[in-house]
Amino acid sequence: MGCSHVVEDGNEEIHKFIDNKVRVNEIPINGTIEITHRCNLKCIHCYLPPVNYQEAIDKELSYEEICNIIDQIVQEGCLWLYISGGEPLIRNDFLDIFTHAKEKGLVVIIATNGTLITPKIANYLQEWNNYSLEISLYGITKETYEKVTGILGSFEQCMKGINILTERSIPFLLRTPLMTINEHEILKIKKYAGRMGIDFGFDSVIYPMVNGSKKPCKLRVSEKDAVKLELEIYGDVKKMGYKKNNQLFNCNAGEIAFRIDPYGKLILCPLFRFPNYNLRDGSFKEGWNFLHKIRTQKPPDSYKCKNCEKVIFCDTCPALSQLENQNLYDPVEYACQIAHIRAEMSKNM
């Protein structure tokens, strides 16, 4: 869920290191590997189309291939690795993949829906250090949660997973994609997280599906409500301090971040999957150079966001424009409206 960002390590030295050395040398320090697109839930907002399990298994990277890729990314300087999906815990060899990543000295973040966490998995994770989980919590009641996931009993499974982690003091945070379906429960989820002493965040922009379907976008809450919730949850509007005018790609993707899909395609981010580089046909190092070329392309003179004063308030990016408008350059109306409201609110603060 969400785009590439450097994990907050809370360590000032590391932040200096990222700004002074990693960014300057364009080191791929922050990676995500989607080890499968299979998932046990059928979330209504998901940007990934459902997959046929057997076909997916046949095509997915094997454990050996994943280990080989992990060795290469470590060689090139990766330090933080998200293991994501689909639902990564659905793979039988998930713990083996996790172990390989840990033994290579990666800080691992497992992006999961939490429903497949068992005491056995948690006991194993507990032996390790420098990892955490990011659990998507879609609602705080069975009714809302399962309206999103489409699977009866999934709420109970998720809460069970959360309890298993809590009992063992395993570090995790909660994230919720904001939708009309769960809008009324966001503050309750925040309260729940607060009681448990867990970090919580929500994503206000629901993405179109990567196959071009805009069906999930119908679940977006009104722009005003999204910003209102931001203020209530975070006490401020969201700002993207890293954004600059006259650049097409502003995020970390292709500069210090990358993503790999379950079939070995190196991609810029979850939304930008074409063009890509097939790691089954070449090295990560070559692929990284390939991503860099995509990332550094300049916007055309006609680029509407070029001189926008509200760019630091805006969630839009070329990948989202591509999915929503079928080109890299046109502003995404929803993100644009939110940016204007954020800018306005910001003036009054």
Partner: peptide, 19 residues
């Protein structure tokens, strides 16, 4: 990484610090 040496504790029994 980038000529900088970084130590990553990987096992839980190494100190208490998750850093």
């Amino acid at each position: 990484i980038a000529d900088e040496v970084i130590l990553v504790p990987i096992r839980q029994n190494v100190g208490d610090l998750e850093s």
